[in-house]
Design a protein around this nucleic acid. Structure first.
Ligand SMILES: [Mn+2]
Ligand SMILES: [Mn+2]
Ligand SMILES: [Mn+2]
Ligand SMILES: [Mn+2]
Lengths: 146, 146
DNA sequence: AAAGCAATTTAGCCTTGACTAACTTTGAAA
DNA sequence: TTTCAAAGTTAGTCAAGGCTAAATTGCTTT
């Protein structure tokens, strides 16, 4: 009557894909708060036009996304003014920046070309669990100590 | 008059994000052809109901996706019958299966728990360039040779 | 052969994330 | 202080990828 005991417990692929869809739903948010934070540090403020240029999308697309981020509590903004991170946004931005850096450093440390690492890290970062991130960081440290 | 020589050539982040959006556009297709191929090998045929169960989505969603794959030349199907890969579909499936395996093996080889590796590989695989994949494979081989 | 259940399809809806085109606002230069 | 280009907004469109509910088909079992 109970579940059959299984040696390999996940023939339950559905969980894996559910988690994947969750990660996808967060990607744009994560890249935006990270970029907004970068702009504030590098240029003093985050303007729509700079986001559009850096992401390679139109101003209208940035506008839509910022409205969503505002709705979800990550940023504040007033018409025709620059964009600010909320506490929640800052917290996420820091987490994402750190994670991004760890992934990038890891790739370079195992021998990936820095240019390629920059491309790949932008996607990989959103699919790295806490555990894998810790392993990446440890490997980077070990490789640095050459 | 020429481009200014730059030490760090990519303050051109837009390229990175354009490539990222491309990768996203291919993800579902890649996971579907891989899964269809798995089902054909494991169960003799690929039925909608099995795809829905493994991905954790509804039958209607599978139907939409299969129509898109058919439109794009990856599968053939007839109403109420099972799904077949075209040559193009088979080729992509093989590439994706191999890549998936390399990413998974790599994660495990550097010390990530197999369970976690299974989750993370499902996302990471779509964002790994040819170059990074070669490095992953090389690292796995080196770690195996312990 | 008919019934009924499981599988599949269809129709209609939603959100995200992209676009173009047209309009409004801001702010710097004239 | 006027003007006008750049920045930002709004409106409308589209495809992908999800969903539910309802209709249809195929298959198995009586
Ligand atoms: Mn990032
Ligand atoms: Mn990213
Ligand atoms: Mn895969
Ligand atoms: Mn995948």
């Amino acid at each position: 009557m109970g579940d059959k005991p299984t040696l390999n417990p996940r023939h339950n692929k559905a969980e894996v894909f559910a988690r994947l869809r969750d990660a996808h739903a967060r990607e744009v948010t994560e890249d935006y708060v990270e970029m907004i934070s970068d702009l504030i540090h590098e240029e003093g403020e985050a303007r729509s036009v700079a986001l559009a240029e850096r992401f390679g999308v139109t101003a209208a697309t940035v506008n839509n996304t910022i409205k969503r981020l505002e709705r979800d509590g990550y940023v504040t903004s007033r018409p025709y003014r620059s964009i600010f991170l909320t506490e929640k946004g800052e917290t996420l931005a820091k987490k994402c920046r750190d994670r991004h850096q760890i992934v990038y450093n890891f790739l370079v440390s195992i021998g990936v070309d820095p240019d390629t690492a920059e491309f790949d890290a932008e996607g990989i970062e959103h699919h790295v669990s806490e555990e894998t991130l810790r392993v990446f960081a440890a490997v980077s440290r070990a490789d640095d100590a050459l």
